[in-house]
Write a protein that binds this DNA or RNA. Structure first.
Length: 982
RNA sequence: GCCCGAGUGGUGGAAUGGCAGACACGGCGGACUCAAAAUCCGCUGCUCGCAAGGGCAUGAGGGUUCGAAUCCCUCCUCGGGCACCA
């Protein structure tokens, strides 16, 4: 005989029933429709548009074929709780969810399943929508576009056109429309070929000149070529060990013609504007490091034997210029071919340098052959290495002398020129002056190649002692000295740095360099321009066509350029590093060839009547669609503009946490830390371009950023080192067994690769969505990683069950509510709880907010048990409203059973009455020598003397103080009493 | 190698200069039950003690302070980022 479960017990079955009911009702009644103040979507039956606006955003998901696991919605739940909380605080909250659906994985999934990516993408989005709806997320369903919608990517293409049709005016410090560049060129502001007036240039020259200034441009430059994926990649998509972030295929540096976006023009603003954002310091730091601004000087080194030929180097240590004893160019440096000598220098070398140097300088590459052969052999050696191999070689210094000399402009010493792969073409000028005494890499190279090491900064005595070194003789140093010190050996007829410290020496030598025209102050960045084209099918086509001379942008009227529906969409992949990129769209011959009559000025290549063009066959990278989706949420149905100006302005109004006006459009942005430099840098860049061109009114996209921690889960490895399905592993006596064989447990990020994903559908079935929501919020602070533990879920499920039972008779389902006033103790607890929950929710500290609600509910449980009475409405209603953001379905159901007809979504969040926050008396711990020995009660507001009297009157304290001398007494009223005794 | 961040009961965590361990899981004991599950109640950092009570405890060591998980220094471990960036 099995006992009946009470029909109205809050269990999974009842929870599911309640959840379905409220999800349907929210949909039917358009509860989460967020009105715009003007324009489209301004229908506003609830009069929300007059409220202050708040934009709460999640990083939108990539709809993969496997659906959601419980790690995904952590951030979505958090933003939903926050959005619901702020709706109850009187905000008109914009909260929606779109889909980032172009990109590599969708294409790979399509290849695997043999289905077209448009079909799989549609299915995957449907799955995600179903799973997210079941969580009860209060999204405005009208505002969630997919980046693959043609009506969406039409505007992605439009933004690309704005970028293409802009140039960066360094003097104005912002991007401006390309037409203004033409005005400036006509006015003679910038140099033109052979100093011809702009209008005297032929149209092709004009076009090339203008193209060279655009923020989107084609460049033939070394790029990251990944044959395993069949596409090129951005720097940000290549891991530290030279592999593709997606798939882990080797990546090679190859010079290829590709589209680039001039993000470097924004380097300073991307760096400086971080200060005005409410982001964690660690994310800001990651962006700062990625941008990598270095200040120093560019110095011009004349090349011996070449009239008017100089090599520019960038250095952060111009103070050490007198110590530059050789020079190094990157192997790919364009001047290498010009300066490489035909023969090794002869006897004069022995006069200037140690007699055995030349053989050392030739290294292993020039032993017998003349310099050009040595150079070309070294170049082959260097370019054959993948980044991975370079890494593995523990930074052994290699290189070769090119047989030529430069002149150190400070002292006219001739210094040999080398090529070496420790100098990178892509950074600074691709050439360095080497100061081996004060740079560790140069030091190692100098040791390897028997080059002079001249110390020009005198190290501290401690350093010299530690390195057993003599200051004058650097040859016995064990490493370079990079610290501060006093300059020496650094004087010529015009300038002397001797006796100065490093910072002063930098200033003085930079002045001298400018005066003598050998250099100038300069700034260099690690950030490179953004490689923006991919050889993929599943991405946004470029609104670009080609004539014989180069690219031409299509006019806005020809948007969208729809992605042709081809059956043959597979990328051409290879394991041959020498394979060349082949965009799949190039095979869509009918689409590629197009006859157009392009209007526009002659200098842009337009206006020649109908003619045949070839379309650009590369597509945009996945980041393109995610760079601006938050803007489309504002005005998703607008067919005339990316976003209506008025609408954008209303959502841009608002304040930061400290009350100052916000500079970022989105009030709260929550997402994974993996986008710290990729998406977040790209999106900031696009937003700034749109800001410069007047399409948005804020200079930043995201005011407050919170990175949610990953959900970790146990993963199990078998004897061969392979991951096994975690769901099928059993625990036996503390050991783990899979299919009868022992496996070892580790913890890792939940997901497909570790085979440890837990599907939300199972949890909806076993506990309900409210329980899942509450559990994910209760596990710990939002920004910390946390281990998933399915057993712990029962704790929050029990809470909901007790809450339900306190409100509702489990047998009949009738509410157990009365209108009698509560006792003072309960009322105090209620108001303290309200106060704490408000603070915690505003701070996204949901775990502690939930703990406070547990306490209140536990108190009510005991209260009802002891009195057997019904729950006073005075506490029932605020408790329901406080639970609502976290567990909205059950809260709505209780609210209804409390006698309310309308949704509680727009009810006011309870406010604490200050009168009930203060206690009449307060318990204060009494310490003796910092150890708590007793507690005494004093009236609130008691002074120091009252505290002391109360403490001394306490029997235990009195006994302990009886034979002791009180040397000091510390009282913090209401907090602590501390006797310091001898 | 450089730069961040984090180390608190058996577990997740709370406390950001003033009572360490809120809240929850797990465990132990009890009530209900023929029994079990569910539910409810109590106990639960370690240690000495029959008890009253004492001692020890926030990765390790030192410092500042009447008082330190919290601030400072050194070290250890783990996690993350960057990595020949001149």
């Amino acid at each position: 005989m099995v006992d009946e479960v009470p029909p109205q017990r809050y269990n999974a079955a009842l929870a599911n029933e309640i959840e379905r009911k409220w999800q349907d009702r929210w949909d039917e009644q358009h509860v989460f429709y967020t009105p715009n103040r003007t324009g489209l979507l301004s229908e506003d039956p609830r009069h929300l548009a007059d409220r202050p606006h708040l934009f709460v955003l999640d990083m939108f998901p990539y709809p993969s074929g496997t659906g959601l696991h419980v790690g995904h919605p952590l951030g979505y739940i958090a933003t939903d709780v926050y959005a619901r909380f702020q709706r109850m605080n009187g905000f008109n909250v914009l909260h929606a969810m779109g889909y980032d659906a172009f990109g590599l994985p969708a294409e790979q999934y399509a290849v695997q399943t043999g289905t077209h990516p448009s079909a799989t993408t549609e299915q995957n989005i449907a799955t995600y929508k179903r799973q997210l709806r079941a969580l009860g997320l209060g999204h405005d369903p009208r505002r969630g576009p997919a980046t693959t919608d043609v009506q969406y990517y039409r505007w992605t293409q439009w933004i690309f056109l704005q970028i293409y049709n802009s140039w960066y005016d360094d003097d104005a410090g912002r991007a401006r429309p390309i037409a203004t560049l033409v005005q400036e060129l006509r006015a003679g502001r910038f140099a033109t070929p052979d100093d011809f007036a702009f209008d005297d240039l032929d149209p092709l020259e004009q076009r090339r000149l203008v193209d060279s200034y655009r923020l989107a441009y084609e460049a033939y430059a070394p790029v990251n070529w990944c044959p395993g994926l069949g596409t090129v990649l951005a720097n940000e998509e290549v891991t530290g060990d030279g592999r593709s972030e997606r798939g882990g295929f080797p990546v090679y540096r190859r010079p290829l013609k590709q589209w680039m976006l001039r993000i470097t023009a924004y380097a300073d603003r991307l760096l400086d504007d971080l200060d005005s954002l409410d982001w964690s310091e660690s994310i800001k730091l990651m962006q700062r490091n990625w941008i990598g601004r270095s200040t120093g000087a560019t110095v011009r080194f004349p090349v011996e034997g070449h009239e008017n030929l100089d090599i520019d180097v960038f250095t952060t240590r111009p103070d050490t210029l007198f110590g530059a004893t050789y020079m190094v160019l990157a192997p790919e440096h364009p001047l290498v071919d010009v300066i490489t000598a035909n023969q090794w220098p002869g006897d004069e070398l022995a006069n200037d340098f140690a007699s055995n140097s030349l053989d050392a300088w030739k290294g292993v590459f020039g032993a017998t052959d003349p310099p050009p052969d040595a150079v070309s052999r070294y170049r082959d050696f260097a370019s054959a290495k993948t980044d991975l191999e370079r890494q593995a070689e523990t930074r052994e210094k290699t290189g070769v002398f090119v047989g030529a000399f430069a002149v150190n402009p400070t002292n006219n010493e001739r210094i040999p020129i080398f090529i070496a792969d420790y100098v990178l073409m892509g950074y600074g000028t691709g050439a360095i002056m080497a100061v081996p005494a004060h740079d560790q890499r140069d030091f190692q190279f100098a040791r390897e190649f028997d080059l002079p090491i001249v110390p020009v900064v005198r190290p501290s005595d401690e350093w010299l002692a530690e390195h057993h070194a003599e200051p004058a003789d650097s040859t016995d140093w064990s490493e370079a000295y990079t610290g501060d010190g006093v300059l020496q050996h650094s004087a010529n007829a015009e300038v002397s740095l001797d006796g100065l410290h490093v910072d002063d020496a930098k200033r003085l030598i930079t002045d001298w360099l400018e005066r003598s025209q050998f250099g100038r102050p300069s700034v260099t960045y690690k950030l490179r321009d953004w490689l923006f084209s991919r050889q993929r099918y599943w991405g946004e086509p470029f609104p670009i066509v080609y004539d014989d001379e180069g690219p031409i942008a299509l006019p806005e009227s020809m948007l969208p350029v729809a992605l042709p529906a081809v059956a043959d969409f597979e990328p051409v992949t290879s394991d041959d590093p020498d394979a060349l990129p082949e965009p799949p769209l190039a095979r869509a011959v009918d689409w590629v060839e197009v006859e157009l009559d392009l209007p526009g000025p002659v200098w842009a290549g337009y206006g020649e009547g109908p003619r045949t063009y070839l379309r650009e066959t590369n597509t945009m990278p996945q980041w393109a669609g995610s760079c601006w989706y938050y803007l489309r949420y504002l005005d998703p149905t607008n067919e005339d503009a990316m976003v209506d100006e008025q609408v954008e302005r209303t959502w841009a109004e608002g304040t930061r946490l400290d009350g100052s006006p916000k500079v970022g459009l989105v009030d709260l942005y929550v997402g994974g830390v993996e986008h710290a430099v990729l998406h977040l840098l790209y999106a900031r860049f696009w937003h700034k371009v749109l800001f410069d061109l007047g399409y948005v009114s804020t200079m930043e996209p995201f005011q407050r950023l919170v990175n949610q921690g990953y959900i970790l889960a146990p993963a199990y490895v078998d004897e061969r080192g392979a991951y096994v399905d975690a769901a099928l592993v059993e625990e036996r006596d503390g050991r783990y067994v899979f299919d009868g064989k022992p496996v070892t447990r580790e913890f890792g990020k939940m997901g497909k690769s570790l085979r440890n994903a837990v599907a939300p559908d199972d949890l909806y079935r076993d506990y309900g969505a409210d329980t899942l929501r509450l559990y994910e919020m209760f596990m710990g602070p939002l920004d910390k990683e946390r281990p998933w533990s399915t057993v712990d879920i029962v704790g929050v499920h029990r809470f909901l069950q007790r809450l339900w039972r306190n409100f509702v008779d489990e047998g009949t389902g009738a509410p157990r509510i009365s209108d009698v006033p509560v006792d003072d103790e309960t009322r105090r607890l209620l108001h303290r709880t309200i106060d704490a929950v408000r603070t915690d929710m505003a701070a996204l500290s949901f775990n502690t907010a939930i703990a406070r609600l547990f306490e209140l509910n536990n108190h009510l449980t005991t209260l009802l048990q002891s009195s057997g009475s019904t729950l006073p409405r005075e506490v029932a209603e605020p408790l329901t409203l406080m639970v609502a953001p976290l567990a909205p379905h059950v809260a709505e159901e209780l609210w209804q059973r409390l006698g309310h007809d309308d949704t509680l979504t727009y009810e006011s969040f309870p406010s604490a009455d200050p009168q009930w926050l203060v206690e009449a008396r307060v318990e204060v711990p009494v310490q003796i020598n910092g150890k708590v020995r007793a507690r005494v009660e004093v009236p609130v507001g008691a002074d120091v003397a009252e505290h002391e009297a109360a403490a001394r009157a306490e029997p235990r304290i009195a006994a302990l103080l009886k034979d002791a001398t009180v040397r000091q007494l510390k009282v913090v009223p209401g907090k602590i009493v501390n006797f310091v005794v001898a």
